[in-house]
């Protein structure tokens, strides 16, 4: 047979060849007739190559070594099965499979939009407070009272800023 292309989803000989340009990147898929119909490729409304590529790249082929998100316990296999992550930390845990996907799926791979400014400020103040509290406890334990007084003042200062932020 001249046509040696195989279906990207099931491996049968491919008869449907699809090219879609998303954000000036060319995406190609080869599908057998069955998969093409099942995926709604023949129905132009509601068909998105990006979704298909996502699902295709999620198709379990090689049993990868089990990577688990430490925060929520989800594994790569869970993601492949559900198409959704377990928690925000999964993005870090499964970095290696997510990053190659993003280029196909989106216009870029780095966020350039809105930043939750107020939440980030609040978080950095909170982190600073926790850090200072630890230093203070440590100073008291080791009887470094001058240091302790300094930490206490700093904590007071941070708390004041923190209070203003949350009140405003």
């Amino acid at each position: 047979m001249a046509n040696s292309l195989k279906c990207d989803l099931c491996g049968k000989p491919a008869t449907v060849h699809l090219t879609q340009i998303v954000n000036s990147k060319v995406h190609k898929v080869d599908l057998c007739e069955g998969c093409a119909q099942a995926k709604g490729v023949t129905d132009p409304s509601g068909f998105s190559l990006a979704d298909l590529l996502l699902k295709a790249s999620l198709n379990p082929e090689q049993p990868a070594n089990v990577v688990r998100c430490e925060q929520c316990g989800a594994t790569q296999a869970d993601f492949k099965k559900l198409g959704r992550f377990g928690c925000p930390a999964c993005y870090e845990a499964f970095k290696e499979i997510v990053e190659p996907m993003l280029g196909n799926m989106h216009k870029g791979t780095v966020h350039v939009g809105k930043v939750p400014q107020r939440a980030l400020e609040r978080k950095s103040l909170y982190d600073r407070l926790t850090h200072l509290q630890g230093e203070l406890d440590e100073a008291i334990k080791t009887e470094r009272y001058e240091d302790a007084a300094r930490f206490r003042d700093e904590i007071h200062q941070v708390k004041q800023t923190f209070g203003e932020k949350t009140l405003s």
Partner: peptide, 24 residues
């Protein structure tokens, strides 16, 4: 955002359950 802490990454933006919604 003033009341709830959002899951946000400086490089990936707002973190969503499905990566197709990631970023904005």
């Amino acid at each position: 955002e003033d009341k709830l802490d959002y899951a946000f990454s400086p490089t990936l933006g707002y973190l969503t359950a499905c990566p197709t919604n990631l970023g904005t």
